[in-house]
Design a protein around this nucleic acid. Structure first.
Lengths: 156, 156
DNA sequence: CCACCTTATGCCAAAATATGACAATTCATG
DNA sequence: CATGAATTGTCATATTTTGGCATAAGGTGG
């Protein structure tokens, strides 16, 4: 599967989990996610980036492959700069602490209004973090979207 | 990977940070940026120059490589002169003080209307400093641009 | 060349924020 | 229902950022 020209080989994340975020912005990563990260990569650190109405999370080693690709682009071209500003400018490295928590940077919390319940959604090679509210809004429409997109696989 | 014929090997800067600039033009560099600068180069001094609607900041050693390249350009060509005036003419070396702050020269502050909140945007080998206002305006269009250019990497 | 004014710098301390360690609670499993 | 694992809470500590002030440096007009 190719995304920004990167092949993602591992299936790490599946399913949905609800976790509480503390006032200081700490939240624990679902243990299954952590377990798989550790199994496949040496590090279980992740990159969190803003994507539409949620946070999109990647294993650090995969993200670094992407960055190396980006470094090869013509650096001064307008397209490259715009692309970098969005993709790299929103990327935050998060270290997982001894209890399996990360600290979500304030700026991301504020942008998405994250507090109380967060929804973790596993999506094979990456996972997403949603505020409960946005997730519910999104889910309302998602079945319709699903019906529309259910035949994507038939072409493969 | 080439930018004015320069190879950029290091990934130093990522993510977004909001810092306050004082009335005297002092602002602290995000600690992660400083940490990486120190790790990779002996010095953590940087060059700040005007670029589009923001300040573009380079580690001093990388900037010096760039200057040596520029010296090789045909000296009296109009393009060279324009290029030099803009890029070199606005370049200021900034020393990072003991609390991790730099002083942004008045002329640059005035040009960009920098006061109160500044946005630091990490872009792999360099970082940018924006006024909050300009950044917001720029970001509005950036997702559209991003969507347009997200397949830019597929060709590599 | 000097006094004056503006701007920059160094230093210290306060405030805000992140981190680490450990305890308490909740949850899943047999 | 007991056990161990996972999650959450709490508090102390460390780090980072900001504010304030005194001094230094630099530029300007007389």
């Amino acid at each position: 599967m190719s995304y920004f020209g990167i092949r993602w080989n591992f299936i790490l994340f599946r399913g949905q989990f609800v976790h509480l975020i503390s006032k200081t912005g700490r939240v624990s990563i679902p243990s299954k996610f952590r377990e798989n990260l550790k199994k496949v990569y040496k590090t279980s650190n992740i990159i969190i980036t803003l994507f539409e109405n949620c946070l999109s999370c990647y294993p650090l080693p995969e993200w670094e492959k992407l960055e190396k690709k980006i470094l090869k682009l013509p650096r001064f071209k307008k397209d490259t700069v715009d692309f970098e500003r969005h993709l790299i400018g929103n990327a935050n490295e998060c270290e997982i602490d001894t209890e399996g928590r990360i600290n979500i940077p304030q700026i991301l919390r504020k942008d998405l209004g994250l507090s109380k319940n967060l929804i973790f959604v596993g999506l094979l090679s990456r996972f997403e973090i949603w505020s409960e509210k946005s997730w519910n809004i999104n889910s309302k429409n998602s079945f319709k979207k699903f019906q529309k997109s259910r035949d994507v696989l038939d072409g493969i």
